[in-house]
Amino acid sequence: MDQKEFDRLASISRLRLDENEREKFLKEIDEVIRLFDEIEKADVDSLEPAFHPIDIPQRLRGEEPEAFGNKKELLGNTKIYRFYVVGPKI
């Protein structure tokens, strides 16, 4: 992986790395990607992907509104101003 690609990944995942981290990760990540590249050898082209390990019966929800009863604690983790959750500037 080149530095440019690495920096792009860090930027789109909103990770700000210091110089030490950057240098260390670059090397380590390269090694991990080499491990990942090994799967190219696997003979699996004809197989269906398995997104889950088991077949799961489909579950759909009916239309009964249900209010979450614990609003105070739900919003207790946020900063509130006139009922609104305060967020960073856009």
Partner: peptide, 13 residues
């Protein structure tokens, strides 16, 4: 990577 890995998961299962 990702799609191929899900096929390997199928093989392992």
């Amino acid at each position: 990577y990702y799609s191929r890995a899900t096929k390997i998961r199928r093989a392992v299962i």
